[in-house]
Design a protein around this nucleic acid. Structure first.
Lengths: 250, 250
DNA sequence: CCAAAAGTGTTGCCTTTACACCCATGT
DNA sequence: ACATGGGTGTAAAGGCAACACTTTTGG
Protein backbone atom coordinates (compact mmCIF):
# COMPACT_ATOMS: atom_id res chain seq x y z
CA UNK A 1 0.00 0.00 0.00
CA UNK A 2 1.30 3.37 -1.01
CA UNK A 3 0.46 5.19 2.16
CA UNK A 4 2.28 2.54 4.14
CA UNK A 5 5.51 3.30 2.30
CA UNK A 6 4.98 7.02 2.63
CA UNK A 7 4.65 6.62 6.37
CA UNK A 8 7.77 4.48 6.64
CA UNK A 9 9.72 7.01 4.63
CA UNK A 10 8.49 9.80 6.81
CA UNK A 11 9.36 7.99 9.99
CA UNK A 12 12.79 6.87 8.90
CA UNK A 13 13.94 9.70 6.66
CA UNK A 14 11.83 12.63 7.73
CA UNK A 15 14.77 14.08 9.59
CA UNK A 16 16.44 14.87 6.31
CA UNK A 17 13.70 17.43 5.81
CA UNK A 18 12.53 18.32 9.29
CA UNK A 19 14.27 19.30 12.53
CA UNK A 20 13.70 16.65 15.17
CA UNK A 21 12.60 17.59 18.71
CA UNK A 22 10.69 20.69 17.63
CA UNK A 23 7.12 20.94 16.43
CA UNK A 24 4.53 23.61 15.88
CA UNK A 25 0.87 23.44 16.86
CA UNK A 26 -1.83 25.83 15.79
CA UNK A 27 -5.02 26.78 17.58
CA UNK A 28 -7.13 28.03 14.69
CA UNK A 29 -10.05 30.13 15.82
CA UNK A 30 -13.10 30.85 13.74
CA UNK A 31 -16.37 32.58 14.54
CA UNK A 32 -19.71 31.23 13.36
CA UNK A 33 -23.28 31.55 14.61
CA UNK A 34 -22.17 33.47 17.66
CA UNK A 35 -19.76 30.76 18.69
CA UNK A 36 -16.00 30.53 18.74
CA UNK A 37 -14.82 27.49 16.83
CA UNK A 38 -11.55 25.59 16.79
CA UNK A 39 -10.28 23.54 13.90
CA UNK A 40 -9.29 19.99 14.90
CA UNK A 41 -7.88 16.96 13.16
CA UNK A 42 -8.78 13.34 13.75
CA UNK A 43 -6.01 10.78 13.56
CA UNK A 44 -6.65 7.44 11.92
CA UNK A 45 -6.77 5.94 15.38
CA UNK A 46 -9.72 8.16 16.27
CA UNK A 47 -8.02 10.62 18.57
CA UNK A 48 -8.40 14.33 18.04
CA UNK A 49 -5.59 16.89 18.03
CA UNK A 50 -4.59 20.35 16.95
CA UNK A 51 -3.25 20.87 13.46
CA UNK A 52 0.49 20.86 13.75
CA UNK A 53 3.62 20.23 11.86
CA UNK A 54 7.36 20.12 11.87
CA UNK A 55 9.97 22.69 11.09
CA UNK A 56 11.97 22.31 7.92
CA UNK A 57 15.69 22.73 8.30
CA UNK A 58 15.76 25.84 6.17
CA UNK A 59 12.54 27.39 7.38
CA UNK A 60 11.87 29.66 10.33
CA UNK A 61 9.54 28.47 13.05
CA UNK A 62 7.09 31.22 12.11
CA UNK A 63 7.12 30.09 8.50
CA UNK A 64 6.48 26.57 9.60
CA UNK A 65 3.32 27.70 11.36
CA UNK A 66 2.24 29.64 8.28
CA UNK A 67 2.76 26.57 6.14
CA UNK A 68 0.84 24.32 8.51
CA UNK A 69 -2.02 26.74 8.48
CA UNK A 70 -1.97 27.07 4.75
CA UNK A 71 -2.07 23.33 4.36
CA UNK A 72 -5.10 22.90 6.63
CA UNK A 73 -7.19 25.85 5.56
CA UNK A 74 -6.00 26.70 2.03
CA UNK A 75 -5.84 30.32 3.17
CA UNK A 76 -3.02 32.81 2.83
CA UNK A 77 -2.33 35.95 4.80
CA UNK A 78 -3.64 34.57 8.03
CA UNK A 79 -3.31 36.40 11.31
CA UNK A 80 -0.94 34.31 13.37
CA UNK A 81 0.48 34.82 16.81
CA UNK A 82 3.01 32.79 18.73
CA UNK A 83 1.62 32.45 22.24
CA UNK A 84 3.55 29.88 24.25
CA UNK A 85 6.02 27.04 24.01
CA UNK A 86 5.18 23.77 25.65
CA UNK A 87 7.98 21.64 26.94
CA UNK A 88 6.89 19.13 29.53
CA UNK A 89 9.19 16.09 29.60
CA UNK A 90 6.43 13.62 28.75
CA UNK A 91 5.62 15.25 25.44
CA UNK A 92 6.53 12.30 23.27
CA UNK A 93 5.47 12.20 19.68
CA UNK A 94 6.62 8.64 19.76
CA UNK A 95 3.61 7.68 21.78
CA UNK A 96 1.58 8.24 18.66
CA UNK A 97 3.52 5.58 16.83
CA UNK A 98 2.48 2.52 18.77
CA UNK A 99 2.32 -0.52 16.58
CA UNK A 100 4.30 0.95 13.74
CA UNK A 101 7.38 -1.07 12.75
CA UNK A 102 10.77 0.56 13.34
CA UNK A 103 9.17 3.42 15.21
CA UNK A 104 11.89 3.25 17.84
CA UNK A 105 14.44 4.21 15.24
CA UNK A 106 12.43 7.14 14.03
CA UNK A 107 13.28 10.78 14.60
CA UNK A 108 9.67 11.04 15.74
CA UNK A 109 10.42 8.85 18.69
CA UNK A 110 11.27 10.57 21.96
CA UNK A 111 10.39 13.92 23.29
CA UNK A 112 9.30 17.02 21.36
CA UNK A 113 8.96 20.62 22.36
CA UNK A 114 6.06 22.36 20.70
CA UNK A 115 5.66 26.00 19.85
CA UNK A 116 2.05 27.12 20.05
CA UNK A 117 0.49 29.61 17.66
CA UNK A 118 -3.04 30.84 17.49
CA UNK A 119 -4.64 31.94 14.26
CA UNK A 120 -7.73 33.98 13.56
CA UNK A 121 -9.51 33.07 10.34
CA UNK A 122 -12.70 33.87 8.53
CA UNK A 123 -14.84 30.84 9.14
CA UNK A 124 -16.75 30.96 5.87
CA UNK A 125 -13.61 31.05 3.78
CA UNK A 126 -12.02 27.97 5.28
CA UNK A 127 -12.14 24.66 3.51
CA UNK A 128 -10.70 22.28 6.11
CA UNK A 129 -8.24 19.77 4.71
CA UNK A 130 -7.05 16.74 6.73
CA UNK A 131 -3.35 15.94 6.58
CA UNK A 132 -2.15 12.60 5.32
CA UNK A 133 -2.12 11.09 8.80
CA UNK A 134 -5.70 12.11 9.51
CA UNK A 135 -9.08 11.16 8.21
CA UNK A 136 -11.03 14.20 9.30
CA UNK A 137 -10.57 17.90 9.83
CA UNK A 138 -13.40 20.06 11.02
CA UNK A 139 -14.61 22.79 13.30
CA UNK A 140 -15.53 22.21 16.90
CA UNK A 141 -17.43 24.52 19.15
CA UNK A 142 -14.86 25.86 21.59
CA UNK A 143 -16.94 24.77 24.56
CA UNK A 144 -17.39 21.26 23.21
CA UNK A 145 -13.80 20.41 22.34
CA UNK A 146 -13.24 16.70 23.10
CA UNK A 147 -10.27 15.22 24.92
CA UNK A 148 -7.21 15.85 22.76
CA UNK A 149 -3.85 14.14 22.62
CA UNK A 150 -0.98 15.16 24.92
CA UNK A 151 -1.41 18.64 26.28
CA UNK A 152 -3.44 19.97 23.39
CA UNK A 153 -6.41 20.85 25.58
CA UNK A 154 -4.11 22.93 27.69
CA UNK A 155 -2.89 24.63 24.52
CA UNK A 156 -6.41 25.59 23.54
CA UNK A 157 -6.99 27.04 27.00
CA UNK A 158 -3.81 29.04 26.94
CA UNK A 159 -4.44 30.33 23.43
CA UNK A 160 -7.87 31.56 24.45
CA UNK A 161 -6.42 33.21 27.52
CA UNK A 162 -3.82 35.04 25.45
CA UNK A 163 -6.38 36.06 22.86
CA UNK A 164 -8.52 37.52 25.62
CA UNK A 165 -5.63 39.49 27.04
CA UNK A 166 -4.79 40.83 23.62
CA UNK A 167 -8.22 42.44 23.43
CA UNK A 168 -7.09 44.88 26.07
CA UNK A 169 -4.66 46.52 23.72
CA UNK A 170 -5.49 45.34 20.23
CA UNK A 171 -8.61 45.36 18.13
CA UNK A 172 -10.02 42.12 16.80
CA UNK A 173 -12.45 41.42 14.02
CA UNK A 174 -10.70 42.01 10.78
CA UNK A 175 -9.49 38.44 10.78
CA UNK A 176 -12.58 36.71 12.13
CA UNK A 177 -15.48 38.47 10.45
CA UNK A 178 -16.49 38.81 6.85
CA UNK A 179 -15.47 41.98 5.10
CA UNK A 180 -18.79 43.68 5.80
CA UNK A 181 -20.37 43.22 9.17
CA UNK A 182 -22.76 44.93 11.54
CA UNK A 183 -22.00 46.49 14.88
CA UNK A 184 -24.08 43.87 16.74
CA UNK A 185 -22.07 41.16 15.01
CA UNK A 186 -18.81 42.74 16.12
CA UNK A 187 -20.17 43.06 19.63
CA UNK A 188 -21.25 39.43 19.62
CA UNK A 189 -17.67 38.52 18.70
CA UNK A 190 -16.23 40.45 21.61
CA UNK A 191 -18.80 39.06 24.00
CA UNK A 192 -18.06 35.54 22.88
CA UNK A 193 -14.31 35.85 23.24
CA UNK A 194 -14.54 37.58 26.59
CA UNK A 195 -17.48 35.46 27.74
CA UNK A 196 -19.29 38.43 29.18
CA UNK A 197 -22.06 40.80 28.13
CA UNK A 198 -21.29 44.31 27.07
CA UNK A 199 -23.50 47.35 26.88
CA UNK A 200 -24.63 47.87 23.31
CA UNK A 201 -24.33 51.66 23.31
CA UNK A 202 -21.04 51.93 25.15
CA UNK A 203 -19.56 49.26 22.96
CA UNK A 204 -20.47 51.14 19.82
CA UNK A 205 -19.00 54.35 21.15
CA UNK A 206 -15.76 52.64 22.11
CA UNK A 207 -15.38 50.95 18.75
CA UNK A 208 -16.13 54.06 16.73
CA UNK A 209 -13.73 56.08 18.87
CA UNK A 210 -10.88 53.88 17.68
CA UNK A 211 -11.29 55.43 14.27
CA UNK A 212 -10.66 52.20 12.42
CA UNK A 213 -14.23 51.53 11.24
CA UNK A 214 -15.90 52.80 8.16
CA UNK A 215 -19.67 52.91 8.05
CA UNK A 216 -21.12 51.95 4.70
CA UNK A 217 -24.19 53.39 3.04
CA UNK A 218 -25.86 49.97 2.99
CA UNK A 219 -27.65 48.21 5.76
CA UNK A 220 -27.95 44.53 6.48
CA UNK A 221 -31.46 43.66 5.36
CA UNK A 222 -33.32 40.42 5.76
CA UNK A 223 -33.19 40.33 9.54
CA UNK A 224 -36.37 40.20 11.54
CA UNK A 225 -35.97 43.72 12.88
CA UNK A 226 -34.56 47.12 12.16
CA UNK A 227 -31.84 46.86 9.55
CA UNK A 228 -28.42 47.56 11.09
CA UNK A 229 -25.70 49.45 9.28
CA UNK A 230 -22.87 47.60 7.68
CA UNK A 231 -19.29 48.45 8.61
CA UNK A 232 -15.91 47.60 7.24
CA UNK A 233 -12.46 48.02 8.75
CA UNK A 234 -10.15 50.61 7.30
CA UNK A 235 -7.28 48.23 6.72
CA UNK A 236 -4.49 50.76 7.05
CA UNK A 237 -5.84 52.26 10.24
CA UNK A 238 -6.59 48.80 11.60
CA UNK A 239 -3.03 47.67 11.03
CA UNK A 240 -1.64 50.81 12.55
CA UNK A 241 -3.77 50.15 15.63
CA UNK A 242 -2.49 46.57 15.76
CA UNK A 243 1.08 47.74 15.68
CA UNK A 244 0.90 50.66 18.04
CA UNK A 245 -1.33 48.99 20.54
CA UNK A 246 -4.31 50.71 22.12
CA UNK A 247 -5.81 51.16 25.50
CA UNK A 248 -9.11 49.38 25.31
CA UNK A 249 -9.53 47.86 28.71
CA UNK A 250 -12.13 45.13 28.51
CA UNK B 1 44.25 19.36 30.00
CA UNK B 2 41.18 18.53 31.99
CA UNK B 3 38.90 21.12 30.53
CA UNK B 4 39.77 19.95 27.05
CA UNK B 5 38.45 16.49 27.84
CA UNK B 6 35.37 17.88 29.50
CA UNK B 7 34.60 19.87 26.36
CA UNK B 8 35.09 16.88 24.08
CA UNK B 9 32.83 14.80 26.27
CA UNK B 10 30.19 17.47 26.24
CA UNK B 11 30.34 17.86 22.48
CA UNK B 12 30.31 14.18 21.70
CA UNK B 13 28.18 12.73 24.46
CA UNK B 14 26.14 15.66 25.70
CA UNK B 15 23.11 14.35 23.86
CA UNK B 16 22.86 11.52 26.37
CA UNK B 17 21.92 14.16 28.90
CA UNK B 18 20.46 17.00 26.87
CA UNK B 19 17.85 17.27 24.12
CA UNK B 20 19.45 18.45 20.89
CA UNK B 21 17.91 21.24 18.83
CA UNK B 22 16.38 23.04 21.83
CA UNK B 23 17.98 25.57 24.12
CA UNK B 24 16.91 28.07 26.72
CA UNK B 25 18.17 31.62 27.06
CA UNK B 26 17.58 33.93 29.98
CA UNK B 27 17.42 37.69 30.06
CA UNK B 28 18.18 38.36 33.70
CA UNK B 29 17.15 41.82 34.78
CA UNK B 30 18.46 43.58 37.85
CA UNK B 31 18.02 47.11 39.14
CA UNK B 32 20.87 49.10 40.57
CA UNK B 33 21.61 52.80 40.93
CA UNK B 34 18.49 53.72 38.99
CA UNK B 35 19.51 51.59 36.05
CA UNK B 36 18.19 48.38 34.61
CA UNK B 37 20.96 45.83 34.32
CA UNK B 38 21.29 42.63 32.31
CA UNK B 39 23.52 39.75 33.26
CA UNK B 40 25.81 38.64 30.42
CA UNK B 41 28.44 35.98 29.90
CA UNK B 42 31.68 36.28 28.00
CA UNK B 43 32.84 33.31 25.99
CA UNK B 44 36.48 32.38 25.97
CA UNK B 45 36.64 33.82 22.47
CA UNK B 46 35.61 37.20 23.81
CA UNK B 47 32.06 37.36 22.53
CA UNK B 48 29.21 38.20 24.87
CA UNK B 49 25.94 36.34 25.16
CA UNK B 50 22.94 35.68 27.34
CA UNK B 51 23.16 32.99 29.97
CA UNK B 52 21.57 29.93 28.49
CA UNK B 53 21.49 26.22 28.68
CA UNK B 54 20.11 23.02 27.36
CA UNK B 55 17.14 20.95 28.34
CA UNK B 56 17.75 17.66 30.07
CA UNK B 57 15.78 14.76 28.72
CA UNK B 58 13.82 14.33 31.92
CA UNK B 59 13.37 17.97 32.74
CA UNK B 60 10.70 20.43 31.65
CA UNK B 61 11.73 23.46 29.66
CA UNK B 62 10.69 25.68 32.55
CA UNK B 63 12.84 23.70 34.94
CA UNK B 64 15.74 24.02 32.58
CA UNK B 65 15.43 27.80 32.74
CA UNK B 66 15.24 27.66 36.52
CA UNK B 67 18.38 25.55 36.63
CA UNK B 68 20.26 27.84 34.26
CA UNK B 69 19.36 30.78 36.41
CA UNK B 70 20.30 29.03 39.57
CA UNK B 71 23.68 28.15 38.14
CA UNK B 72 24.48 31.72 37.10
CA UNK B 73 23.16 33.60 40.10
CA UNK B 74 23.15 31.10 42.96
CA UNK B 75 19.62 32.23 43.71
CA UNK B 76 16.49 30.19 44.25
CA UNK B 77 12.89 31.20 43.91
CA UNK B 78 13.47 33.56 41.07
CA UNK B 79 10.67 35.21 39.17
CA UNK B 80 10.82 33.75 35.71
CA UNK B 81 8.64 34.29 32.68
CA UNK B 82 8.71 32.63 29.31
CA UNK B 83 8.35 35.42 26.77
CA UNK B 84 9.11 34.20 23.26
CA UNK B 85 10.64 31.39 21.25
CA UNK B 86 13.22 32.22 18.64
CA UNK B 87 13.47 29.98 15.64
CA UNK B 88 15.20 31.62 12.71
CA UNK B 89 16.86 29.06 10.44
CA UNK B 90 20.36 30.49 10.89
CA UNK B 91 20.39 29.94 14.63
CA UNK B 92 23.29 27.51 14.71
CA UNK B 93 24.99 26.69 17.94
CA UNK B 94 27.55 24.94 15.82
CA UNK B 95 28.94 28.27 14.71
CA UNK B 96 30.31 28.63 18.18
CA UNK B 97 32.43 25.54 17.75
CA UNK B 98 34.80 26.73 15.09
CA UNK B 99 38.18 25.13 15.45
CA UNK B 100 37.11 22.39 17.78
CA UNK B 101 37.90 18.88 16.58
CA UNK B 102 34.94 16.61 15.73
CA UNK B 103 32.56 19.48 16.13
CA UNK B 104 30.69 18.38 12.99
CA UNK B 105 29.73 15.19 14.72
CA UNK B 106 28.44 16.97 17.76
CA UNK B 107 24.81 17.28 18.74
CA UNK B 108 25.64 20.99 19.13
CA UNK B 109 26.25 21.28 15.44
CA UNK B 110 23.33 22.49 13.31
CA UNK B 111 20.38 24.59 14.12
CA UNK B 112 18.80 25.24 17.53
CA UNK B 113 15.51 26.75 18.54
CA UNK B 114 15.74 28.81 21.70
CA UNK B 115 13.08 29.50 24.26
CA UNK B 116 13.48 32.90 25.85
CA UNK B 117 12.77 33.62 29.50
CA UNK B 118 13.20 36.79 31.41
CA UNK B 119 14.00 36.85 35.09
CA UNK B 120 13.72 39.56 37.68
CA UNK B 121 16.30 39.34 40.44
CA UNK B 122 17.48 41.36 43.37
CA UNK B 123 20.72 42.85 42.16
CA UNK B 124 22.48 42.94 45.51
CA UNK B 125 21.87 39.27 46.19
CA UNK B 126 23.37 38.02 42.97
CA UNK B 127 26.83 36.61 42.85
CA UNK B 128 27.41 36.13 39.13
CA UNK B 129 29.05 32.83 38.22
CA UNK B 130 30.48 32.16 34.75
CA UNK B 131 29.74 28.77 33.24
CA UNK B 132 32.55 26.46 32.27
CA UNK B 133 32.65 27.77 28.73
CA UNK B 134 32.94 31.37 29.83
CA UNK B 135 35.54 33.44 31.56
CA UNK B 136 33.34 36.27 32.78
CA UNK B 137 29.81 36.88 33.97
CA UNK B 138 28.70 40.30 34.99
CA UNK B 139 26.08 42.99 34.85
CA UNK B 140 25.72 45.39 31.97
CA UNK B 141 23.74 48.55 31.88
CA UNK B 142 20.75 47.80 29.68
CA UNK B 143 21.50 50.76 27.46
CA UNK B 144 25.12 49.78 27.03
CA UNK B 145 24.73 46.13 26.12
CA UNK B 146 27.39 45.24 23.53
CA UNK B 147 26.86 43.26 20.34
CA UNK B 148 25.86 39.75 21.36
CA UNK B 149 26.02 36.45 19.52
CA UNK B 150 23.23 35.32 17.19
CA UNK B 151 19.97 37.07 17.88
CA UNK B 152 20.62 37.70 21.56
CA UNK B 153 20.32 41.47 21.21
CA UNK B 154 16.90 40.94 19.73
CA UNK B 155 16.04 38.74 22.70
CA UNK B 156 16.96 41.47 25.13
CA UNK B 157 14.78 43.93 23.22
CA UNK B 158 11.83 41.58 23.16
CA UNK B 159 12.18 40.72 26.83
CA UNK B 160 12.12 44.37 27.76
CA UNK B 161 9.10 44.96 25.57
CA UNK B 162 7.22 42.12 27.24
CA UNK B 163 8.24 43.27 30.70
CA UNK B 164 6.89 46.73 29.90
CA UNK B 165 3.61 45.35 28.71
CA UNK B 166 3.29 43.26 31.83
CA UNK B 167 3.34 46.43 33.93
CA UNK B 168 -0.09 47.25 32.59
CA UNK B 169 -1.66 44.38 34.44
CA UNK B 170 0.85 43.18 36.99
CA UNK B 171 2.80 44.83 39.76
CA UNK B 172 6.56 44.72 39.75
CA UNK B 173 9.08 45.32 42.46
CA UNK B 174 8.99 42.39 44.78
CA UNK B 175 11.57 40.64 42.67
CA UNK B 176 13.80 43.56 41.78
CA UNK B 177 14.04 45.58 44.97
CA UNK B 178 15.36 44.78 48.38
CA UNK B 179 12.86 43.71 50.97
CA UNK B 180 12.48 47.20 52.34
CA UNK B 181 12.36 50.09 49.93
CA UNK B 182 11.06 53.61 49.66
CA UNK B 183 8.30 54.92 47.45
CA UNK B 184 10.71 57.02 45.40
CA UNK B 185 12.81 53.91 44.81
CA UNK B 186 9.79 52.01 43.57
CA UNK B 187 8.87 54.92 41.37
CA UNK B 188 12.38 55.07 39.96
CA UNK B 189 12.04 51.40 39.07
CA UNK B 190 8.84 51.98 37.16
CA UNK B 191 10.23 55.02 35.44
CA UNK B 192 13.31 53.14 34.39
CA UNK B 193 11.43 50.19 32.97
CA UNK B 194 8.92 52.35 31.18
CA UNK B 195 11.50 54.94 30.24
CA UNK B 196 9.20 57.80 31.11
CA UNK B 197 8.65 60.12 34.05
CA UNK B 198 5.70 59.70 36.34
CA UNK B 199 4.06 62.12 38.71
CA UNK B 200 5.34 61.49 42.20
CA UNK B 201 2.01 61.99 43.99
CA UNK B 202 -0.19 60.16 41.54
CA UNK B 203 2.23 57.28 41.46
CA UNK B 204 2.06 56.91 45.21
CA UNK B 205 -1.72 56.96 45.20
CA UNK B 206 -1.89 54.33 42.49
CA UNK B 207 0.54 52.04 44.24
CA UNK B 208 -1.12 52.34 47.61
CA UNK B 209 -4.54 51.77 46.08
CA UNK B 210 -3.40 48.32 44.99
CA UNK B 211 -3.40 47.33 48.63
CA UNK B 212 -0.27 45.25 48.35
CA UNK B 213 2.11 47.57 50.18
CA UNK B 214 2.77 47.78 53.87
CA UNK B 215 4.23 50.95 55.25
CA UNK B 216 6.76 50.38 58.00
CA UNK B 217 7.35 52.48 61.06
CA UNK B 218 10.93 53.15 60.05
CA UNK B 219 12.22 55.62 57.56
CA UNK B 220 15.21 55.45 55.31
CA UNK B 221 17.78 57.66 56.98
CA UNK B 222 21.15 58.74 55.71
CA UNK B 223 19.87 60.42 52.56
CA UNK B 224 20.59 64.05 51.95
CA UNK B 225 17.00 65.11 52.47
CA UNK B 226 13.80 64.32 54.24
CA UNK B 227 13.80 60.70 55.31
CA UNK B 228 11.30 58.73 53.23
CA UNK B 229 9.17 55.95 54.67
CA UNK B 230 10.15 52.37 54.09
CA UNK B 231 7.67 49.97 52.55
CA UNK B 232 7.51 46.27 52.11
CA UNK B 233 5.25 44.15 49.90
CA UNK B 234 2.62 42.03 51.56
CA UNK B 235 3.70 38.84 49.92
CA UNK B 236 0.31 37.13 49.94
CA UNK B 237 -1.51 40.11 48.53
CA UNK B 238 1.28 40.69 46.03
CA UNK B 239 1.02 37.16 44.74
CA UNK B 240 -2.73 37.36 44.56
CA UNK B 241 -2.35 40.50 42.46
CA UNK B 242 0.13 38.74 40.21
CA UNK B 243 -2.26 35.89 39.63
CA UNK B 244 -5.48 37.78 39.20
CA UNK B 245 -4.00 40.54 37.13
CA UNK B 246 -4.82 44.16 37.67
CA UNK B 247 -5.73 47.18 35.64
CA UNK B 248 -2.84 49.54 36.09
CA UNK B 249 -2.54 51.20 32.73
CA UNK B 250 0.89 52.78 32.47
C1' DC C 1 -50.15 47.49 16.58
C1' DC C 2 -46.85 44.98 19.08
C1' DA C 3 -42.42 42.82 20.13
C1' DA C 4 -37.75 42.85 19.33
C1' DA C 5 -33.68 44.85 17.81
C1' DA C 6 -31.02 48.96 16.36
C1' DG C 7 -29.69 54.05 16.35
C1' DT C 8 -28.59 57.97 19.25
C1' DG C 9 -27.83 61.09 23.41
C1' DT C 10 -27.49 62.31 28.37
C1' DT C 11 -26.28 61.97 33.07
C1' DG C 12 -23.54 61.12 37.00
C1' DC C 13 -19.76 58.87 38.97
C1' DC C 14 -15.28 57.73 39.49
C1' DT C 15 -10.72 57.57 37.96
C1' DT C 16 -6.92 60.07 36.36
C1' DT C 17 -4.28 64.28 35.93
C1' DA C 18 -2.45 68.45 37.17
C1' DC C 19 -0.93 71.19 40.51
C1' DA C 20 0.37 73.67 45.57
C1' DC C 21 1.69 73.62 50.06
C1' DC C 22 4.17 72.03 53.99
C1' DC C 23 7.94 69.35 56.17
C1' DA C 24 12.49 67.33 57.01
C1' DT C 25 17.51 67.05 56.30
C1' DG C 26 22.41 67.99 54.99
C1' DT C 27 25.31 71.56 53.42
C1' DA D 1 18.91 79.71 55.57
C1' DC D 2 18.28 77.32 51.65
C1' DA D 3 18.12 73.93 48.23
C1' DT D 4 16.40 69.55 47.53
C1' DG D 5 13.58 65.91 47.96
C1' DG D 6 9.55 63.75 50.40
C1' DG D 7 4.60 63.60 52.40
C1' DT D 8 -0.18 64.96 51.65
C1' DG D 9 -4.49 67.15 49.69
C1' DT D 10 -7.57 69.21 46.21
C1' DA D 11 -9.79 70.78 42.09
C1' DA D 12 -10.60 70.17 37.17
C1' DA D 13 -10.95 67.08 33.35
C1' DG D 14 -11.90 63.12 31.04
C1' DG D 15 -13.44 58.53 30.51
C1' DC D 16 -16.73 55.05 31.53
C1' DA D 17 -20.90 53.01 33.08
C1' DA D 18 -25.76 53.28 33.63
C1' DC D 19 -29.68 54.43 31.50
C1' DA D 20 -34.21 56.30 28.17
C1' DC D 21 -36.18 57.40 24.17
C1' DT D 22 -37.02 56.92 19.27
C1' DT D 23 -36.99 54.25 14.91
C1' DT D 24 -37.51 50.36 12.01
C1' DT D 25 -39.11 45.84 10.67
C1' DG D 26 -41.66 41.38 10.53
C1' DG D 27 -45.45 39.09 12.24
Amino acid sequence: MDREKQLRDFLLKGDKTYMPRVSVDCVIFGFHEDQLKVLLLRWKDGRWCLPGGFVKWDESVDDSAVRTLQERTALNNIYLQQFHTFGAPDRERGKKLKGIPDSKKSWMHDRFVSIGYYALVEFSKVNPIPDWLSDACHWWDLHKVPALIYDHNEMVEKALEKLRLSLNDHPVGYNLLQEKFTMPELQRLYETILDKRLDRRNFQKKMLSLGILERLKERKTGGAHKAPFLYRFDKKKYERAMKQGLKLGF
